[in-house]
Simulated assay, not measured.
Amino acid sequence: MLDKLNIVKQRFDEVSDLIIQPDIISDQKRYVQINKEYKELSELMKKRKEYITLSGNISEAEEIIADGSDDEMVEMAKMELDEAKERLPQLEEEIRYMLIPKDPEDAKNVVVEIRAGTGGDEASIFAGDLYRMYTKYCEGKGWSVSTVDYNEGTSGGFKEVIFEVAGEDVYGTMKFEAGVHRVQRVPQTETQGRVHTSAATVMVLPEAEEFDVELDMQDVRIERTTSTGPGGQSVNTTYSAIKLHHEPTGIIVSCQDQKSQHKNLEKALKVLRSRLYEAELAKKQAADSEKRKSMVSSGDRSAKIRTYNYPQGRVTDHRIGLTLYDLGNIIDGDIQKLIDELMLAENTEKLKENSELF
């Protein structure tokens, strides 16, 4: 383990030197990459320091016990040895996870798209519930959430809602939410009191930087319209809403959230880039059979990933067979326990795939 950590230290020393070089500082893209690597390696260096300290404590304690000349020192050494030996396997496991090659997408911000599926008005209401759940979860983590576009349902909720989330390692966390979510409950629109099953689809797209996707604006037709929705200043009066038509792919993106046409165009272009980037990413993942083997974060839009059952108060994640009887808190934004279990399942899979590293 220490040999591997020493190799990492060599890279940390290189990166520490690179990060202060003027040519790196002047190249924004390169500087962001190096700075990110520096932060990740710094965490590993803390673990390396702890590992060296623990190993030294074990050796020292074993020497004192072997010598046996001072009973009090031997007793203290035994206690220290027990503590160190209990911590060492945990630390090694933490280091193994940190040594797994990172998915470069994980650090990206995301564009989330929620669309009502089967179930009519109830599906739109459920899509609204999911939007509220994710908004509360993201805000609880200190991430910023910004709406791009929405199409309200006739009885509440959304037929479709698109929003951006910005923060630290957002895609690495939110990617597990991609897929079909089902709800089983008595709809607000149902008079007979029967339980119905409705669905909504969640897409989580890693936000593409300008240098990730070369977007030829000659391929983009821009349509400017008035905003729709509840009345108010600028709505239905100014041509601030934007609709982009990407001719080569047929992708259409709308944005009417901001009063400023320029800001709506900026947001719409961001979503268009992310959709184009995600399409390329999907091709890459399809080619990588090992990566696609993991159903945990395959992002298969047609896969039914989770069921929210209101009569029983339970939430079941079908990918890992996890059922939690805590629906009220989960739908109120407390989804961290689900994400933790999904991350654990994926990391365990990665450990198996990268077993030769250890």
Score class of each variant (00 low, 15 high):
residue 297 S to I: 01
residue 254 S to Y: 05
residue 119 G to V: 03
residue 246 H to K: 13
residue 182 R to N: 08
residue 56 G to V: 00
residue 54 L to N: 14
residue 248 P to R: 07
residue 286 A to C: 00
residue 170 V to C: 10
residue 273 R to C: 08
residue 238 T to E: 09
residue 349 E to Y: 15
residue 247 E to T: 14
residue 132 R to H: 08
residue 236 N to Q: 15
residue 148 V to R: 01
residue 319 R to E: 05
residue 33 Q to W: 00
residue 59 S to N: 14
residue 31 Y to L: 10
residue 234 S to I: 02
residue 358 F to C: 01
residue 198 S to P: 13
residue 165 V to S: 07
residue 122 E to Q: 06
residue 79 M to R: 13
residue 58 I to L: 10
residue 20 I to G: 02
residue 3 D to I: 08
residue 105 E to K: 07
residue 18 L to G: 02
residue 114 I to D: 09
residue 14 E to N: 05
residue 23 D to K: 11
residue 351 L to I: 12
residue 242 I to Y: 00
residue 143 W to T: 07
residue 70 D to I: 13
residue 240 S to E: 12
residue 250 G to A: 08
residue 147 T to C: 00
residue 70 D to M: 10
residue 167 G to Q: 09
residue 6 N to H: 10
residue 5 L to D: 08
residue 319 R to L: 04
residue 140 G to I: 07
residue 4 K to S: 01
residue 320 I to H: 09
residue 142 G to P: 07
residue 309 N to R: 01
residue 308 Y to G: 11
residue 106 D to M: 04
residue 225 T to Y: 05
residue 236 N to C: 11
residue 91 L to N: 10
residue 156 G to N: 00
residue 91 L to V: 11
residue 32 V to G: 05
residue 150 Y to C: 01
residue 132 R to C: 00
residue 323 T to V: 06
residue 278 E to D: 15
residue 156 G to M: 00
residue 193 G to Y: 07
residue 78 K to G: 13
residue 164 E to F: 00
residue 84 A to E: 05
residue 315 V to I: 11
residue 305 I to E: 06
residue 343 M to L: 09
residue 146 S to P: 01
residue 5 L to F: 08
residue 137 Y to Q: 06
residue 7 I to P: 01
residue 39 K to M: 05
residue 349 E to F: 15
residue 108 K to Y: 06
residue 279 A to F: 06
residue 309 N to D: 04
residue 112 V to W: 06
residue 158 F to H: 06
residue 325 Y to Q: 11
residue 230 P to M: 07
residue 243 K to D: 07
residue 319 R to I: 04
residue 53 T to V: 07
residue 295 M to Y: 02
residue 26 S to A: 12
residue 282 A to W: 04
residue 125 I to G: 04
residue 143 W to M: 14
residue 317 D to W: 04
residue 253 V to E: 08
residue 210 E to I: 13
residue 224 R to Y: 13
residue 28 Q to V: 06
residue 339 I to N: 11
residue 280 E to K: 15
residue 208 A to K: 01
residue 267 K to G: 01
residue 98 M to N: 15
residue 301 R to I: 00
residue 5 L to K: 09
residue 134 Y to L: 03
residue 28 Q to K: 12
residue 142 G to R: 08
residue 18 L to R: 06
residue 277 Y to H: 14
residue 205 L to C: 09
residue 188 Q to V: 15
